[in-house]
Design a protein around this nucleic acid. Sequence first.
RNA 1: GGUGCCAUCGCCAAGUGGUAAGGCCGCAGCCUGCAAAGCUGCUAUCCCCAGUUCAAAUCUGGGUGGCACCUCCA
Length: 466
Amino acid sequence: MTIYDSAQKKKREFIPQEEGKVTLYVCGPTVYDDAHLGHAKSALVFDLLTRVLKANGYDVTYARNITDIDDKIIKKASEQKKDIKEITDFYTEAFHKEMQAIGISRPNIEPKATESLEAMFELIQKLIDSGHAYKTAEGDVYFDTASDSEYLTLSHRVQDEEQMQNRVESSSAKKNSADFAMWKSVSDNSLTYESPFGAGRPGWHVECSAMIEKHLACSNNKFAVDIHGGGADLLFPHHENEAAQTRCATEHALANYWMHNGFVNINGEKMSKSLGNSFFLKDALKVYDGEVLRFYLLSTHYRSNFNFNEEDMLASKKRLDKIYRVKKRLFGLADANEKTPFQEKLLEALSDDMNVSLALAQIDEMISTANERLDTPGKHKELKRETMANLAYIEKVLGFGAKNPFEYFQFGVNEATKTKLANLIASRDEAKKAKNFEISDKIRDEILACGVTLMDTPQGTFWEKV
RNA sequence: GGUGCCAUCGCCAAGUGGUAAGGCCGCAGCCUGCAAAGCUGCUAUCCCCAGUUCAAAUCUGGGUGGCACCUCCA
């Protein structure tokens, strides 16, 4: 397997520290608002990664944190006059529900900041003791970036002297403008946590380092985790700071491989909280099938930027449709589980830094070949079994095609309409039998006007929502 | 301003030295009562210029045009 390592800026052969075992940590959401397409993309990328790792025989331990201590949460809680926990519980649950809707399974570990405070204290204390952090008169604890000779080696940044000067003046408590808070003292009466450094709240970066130590790190290893992932924007400063904290506080570096997924733009514009143009997952799920969203968001290489637009989404739907139509064709056959050359090729593509595009091209080819052969007379017992096995494999590794194919094509159609359709189709069948094609075609046109296509097959007439 | 990424058919998108995958759209055909679905066939020399090489979309240099990070953000 190869993985593009953003720290070394090249593709590297993936070799875990412990044979057959992989530890993966991904930065998760801050639960103060609904998840948008960007959260979905990131979660999707690392969901795929765990699937590919598992398909390669690795035992994967995957942790994704939930940040439930944050100024924005506190702000929202006070705005809505609600309890902090009420807010964080609500958005955590929504996050889980929406992720599930796009076929993402839960990580093995989902640590919360509120449950990891002790680990943070420990890490901060170690850094203070070793001279890598200092406490200010106001009671804040800062990481001393100057004490870390490897600082900025992850993001390959250069310290900007002028900018540094400017900031030092504006924030005199810091020794160095690049220094970042690990513990912020809070004097007002908003939410605070008691700590050995006084009452306050933890800095954002310390959370991940602490959780990784607590849940994943093994002190004998050179790296705390094999792979650390997150959105491209997290490389700096978030991951740079995490890496600095961990290497200075412990005997190991934070991660052997760093993975960063590209951004989701909406119609060419960056989606951001400040621009207020976020496309929320919950809204997308009202209009599109979760699996179509999954397919679409995954159809572009994870490191590229992704430009969301409806037209491309439709093209993705049509591609997914093809998988489901084969499934429909083979509906009712027994599940099969056998190794095929197709599966090897598929896994090979995905194992090359998750080359999804190549994998999808192989799927299209497999489907096309299967359809072609199924169109010829014969029982095709072996072909059918093999195709069933391939479909099951696609479902396992990519998470496409998990639904009942008939239900898939009925997305968004309510029961009343389904009954109506059944009646219309029945009367059309009668007209067809009587060779009264004028009437039967008229009924079909009416149905089509409602966005439903009919398909006459030897097994009867089926319908699909367009 | 600093740092970095990208530029392949109308659209989406692989390929990173050996002579351009795949999908959508379009056109033609097979199938069909007609359709839909499925199948078959057709459609690019890779932003521009220069260089390296027997050979470049792929490497180097220079342009042009996008984008990201440097501030909370997946």
